[in-house]
Design a protein around this nucleic acid. Structure first.
Lengths: 186, 186
DNA sequence: CGCGCGATTGAGTAATTTCAAATCTAGTGG
DNA sequence: CCACTAGATTTGAAATTACTCAATCGCGCG
């Protein structure tokens, strides 16, 4: 648990043992079972979550009851309803577990405190946020530019491990097509 | 010029005069005319750009020669080909000016140096990146969830000032529909 | 007046969705 | 080991949405 987080952070910034102990003290572990919810639409959201193991999905249910998947998050991914967290508004997203999942939780306030006290961590989170931004840009380009089949192929080659663990129905909801259409893309 | 940047930063972190002078020393002004290019596909990208005034668009041209707009950037917006900048790969995007435009440029290396020497600025850029991330998530949700008409209406209400300054053809390229389709959404 | 650019309109085509039904698969209990 | 069920996937056919390509319109500017 500790090791997973440490290794993840140290891919970007090295930390002494003491520093990592400080970092780790800001996190609270959480354990959920498959199908449990981490966030429900309408909740107020205080934390960002680091997935130690397992798999969750963050999704939006529209007026017609259809699901749209904002993101998956497996080992070493960060997830929450960022809009709700940052703007302190009620959650628009649901987040639930596709597998039994262990997480580390940090509140927005604690993250800011941690960043204020340990400059390296502010750097770490800035770089993380930058990478996330780039990943979302790539996804937008793929939505603008590519048809369903191309998006599906990109998904498989970009996230081969997710492709193994996630049903096609959910991949369809991530790619923005119906499951029937996805099924017809031989 | 200086004032525009200072005001922008101080919406998030207050700075002393001395601090701001340091910050500003990292930026290099740049002036472009309408239709000039800031970045061309294939370029290596070293800088991030802050738009002081004017308007640019960052866009991708696909295999069929069609444009897809990644983002617009007007006063107080940041823009570059982030993927190219962060991964040090050749630019995939073109960035050109829709109006005469004044910019402030900062290299990735200088930005890191600035952040390292002035912790407040690392905080500033982290928060900026977070907001950007949320904005892209919203756009993805709108692409997954809403049809062309709804996206068009959201665009108008979210960016009324852009709506004034940008041709419908370009808005179409941003929303991911053809100009003909957009034109039929009375 | 006429050019040029952006916006609109029309008609036919392609891609995707919808709704319904059939098929497949993994896990459960007998 | 087999039958049964729930969930996931696939298939079919019709309806809808958006696209393409071509033609037309409208307006500002030289």
């Amino acid at each position: 648990m500790k090791e997973v987080l440490r290794k993840h952070i140290e891919e970007i910034v090295p930390l002494t043992d003491d520093q990592f102990d400080i970092v780790f003290s800001y996190f609270k572990p959480k354990k959920l079972k498959k199908k449990d919810f981490l966030v429900k639409q309408g909740d107020s959201v205080n934390c960002e979550y680091f997935v130690v193991n397992g798999l969750v999905k963050a999704f939006y249910i529209d007026d017609e009851g259809k699901d749209h998947i904002m993101q998956f998050a497996m080992e070493n991914w960060w997830v929450t309803d960022y809009q709700a967290l940052l703007h302190k508004t009620p959650a628009q997203l649901d987040i639930d577990c596709l597998e039994d999942t262990k997480l580390l939780c940090i509140t927005l306030e604690d993250k800011d405190k941690l960043c204020a006290s340990l400059h390296k961590m502010e750097y770490f989170f800035r770089k993380k946020s930058n990478s996330g931004y780039v990943a979302l840009q790539r996804r937008i380009l793929s939505l603008l530019n590519n048809d369903a089949k191309e998006r599906y192929e990109q998904f498989m080659s970009l996230y081969p491990s997710l492709y193994q663990r996630v049903s096609k129905t959910l991949i369809a909801a991530y790619l923005g097509v119906t499951r029937e259409t996805l099924s017809r893309l031989a």
